[in-house]
Design a protein around this nucleic acid. Sequence first.
DNA 1: TCCTTATGGACATATAATATCCTTAAAGGA
DNA 2: TCCTTTAAGGATATTATATGTCCATAAGGA
Lengths: 161, 161
Amino acid sequence: MQLKNQVEWALHCCSILAGLPDGRYLDTKSLAQLHGVPKEYLSKALQALAKAGLVLSTLGPSGGYRLARAASGITFWDVVSAIEGPGPAFVCTEIRRNNPCRPKSTCDAKACIVARVMWEAEDAWREKLRGMTIAKLVDQVVEEVPADLMEATAVWVGERS
Amino acid sequence: MQLKNQVEWALHCCSILAGLPDGRYLDTKSLAQLHGVPKEYLSKALQALAKAGLVLSTLGPSGGYRLARAASGITFWDVVSAIEGPGPAFVCTEIRRNNPCRPKSTCDAKACIVARVMWEAEDAWREKLRGMTIAKLVDQVVEEVPADLMEATAVWVGERS
DNA sequence: TCCTTATGGACATATAATATCCTTAAAGGA
DNA sequence: TCCTTTAAGGATATTATATGTCCATAAGGA
């Protein structure tokens, strides 16, 4: 079990878009260069974010993407679920029904206990992701990344947005 | 991103093995029939549990598997990590290093912030799984599953162990 | 009109999950 | 000793998913 690389890409892209001058857009090509990932495939991830309403896009020269709302209103879960889909990682195939001792007529009041436990654990994971926003991420980045690299990147992005 | 079906199978198998009469073994064939899953493939999952030290196996007639220790000493995380591997679901490919503005000499003191956040969320998931044991699972099963089905299954298993 | 860009579909490849088959060796019973 | 049963593990096949590329289309800006 592994999350798609697109999750990593999308989160990094969001942190870049969060630092964009107001009203400006950054295009796929620049985001791909900045992260060293294939432009065409990154494009699919950005399209997923757009479809989920997390980013806005515009066409033509100086087109590209920007965040659809304040970075404080976009959580890690928003991004992860946009890329991976909102469904659970644990899929219950109801193998309890295959018990040969079980009468056909048996009707299950509750979901399988195994599934419920697995889903509770996922809830804890999801809650953690919901508690982290792109804004908080950017705060951390500003705190940890050397100021000159932050500045150089801002200039690089500014030239392309 | 989805967990393997083998995780579901392995957990159900553990709950069955936990109910086994002392010192008895239940074979792969019976476990497969009981859950309606392919014997050969389930066998791979059981081998993974054995390799992880969660179950013991023995050969020959009346051979099969039993828990290697008390059900209270086996957690959901033990089973999940035996099947899925202990590694994180989020894999950091260090795309921050691909930033063209970044001097080659840059050395990272800490892991990427994005990765750290994702891993913290996974820790919460893992902790939930660590907090649930096969013994607790069995308690819940006893509480929720109709007594006659529990009894019939115990008889069925008893005849084959 | 021309260039740039996102969109979306089609397609190709790589990797992982699922599934089956077969050989080997060990355990138990006849 | 011989035969049956069983787990172990390797080889292989099949299917699904992830990754990656390409192209046609439509829309925005110069």
